[in-house]
Structures are given as C-alpha cells and as structure tokens.
Amino acid sequence: MQLLSESIDGALVICVDAPRIDAAAAVQFKDAMRAATQDAQHRVVLDLSKVDAIDSSGLGAIVTVMKHLAPDTRLELAGLTEKVAAVFRLTRMHSVMTIHDTVDQALASAARVS
C-alpha cells in the first residue's frame, strides 16, 4: 500500500494513496504505517481524503496503529470522505479519535494549541 508522508510543522502527515482500506488491504496498511511512523514524534496526521471505502478490518487496523503509536505519539485523522466518515460514526470511533475536516485544519489546530 502506497503511503505518502511529509513532515509539516512538527507533525508527520501521511496520505493513504489507495481507494480502500479493507480486509484485503488491512495487513499491508498496518505494515506500511509501522514503517512510515518509525521516526514519528508527537503527532501523526493520517490523510484519508483519497480513501473511498473502509470496512471493520480497515478500522481495526487504524486502531492498532493508534495503540502502537501511543502514548508518545498521537494519531489524528483528516479528510474523511462521507462514506468513510459514516463508518467512524456507526462504530463510535469518531468519539474516540481526533478527526479534522482537512489536513490544513489539522495543522492549524495544532498551531492554536501551542
């Protein structure tokens, strides 16, 4: 699975360049995320704007990554498409994770906090 990562203002922004994070892609996603976040500091922003669909396996993989990074590094999400956002609402994951409308808003919110 292709992940595009970039450090911006102290945050590691990782864009998932794939249409689906589903059961067929979940293991690849976890492996790629572990590799991409090895040098992550305080904050990882996962950009899901290119992801059209996610299922429970993909959601579970994101939780696994979030736990793997905790407590030193916080995993936040940005750019959820409507279909992906619906899955987060249905499983109440939207109340557990920090979700931003866009990567720009995610970066701006950190600026306000600091």
Partner: peptide
C-alpha cells in the same frame, strides 16, 4: 486509547 477494540466491529 489502549482499551479500544481492534476487532469485532
């Protein structure tokens, strides 16, 4: 965070 489920959704 650590108490959230990874399976069963």
């Amino acid at each position: 965070t650590m108490a959230q489920p990874e399976h069963g959704f």
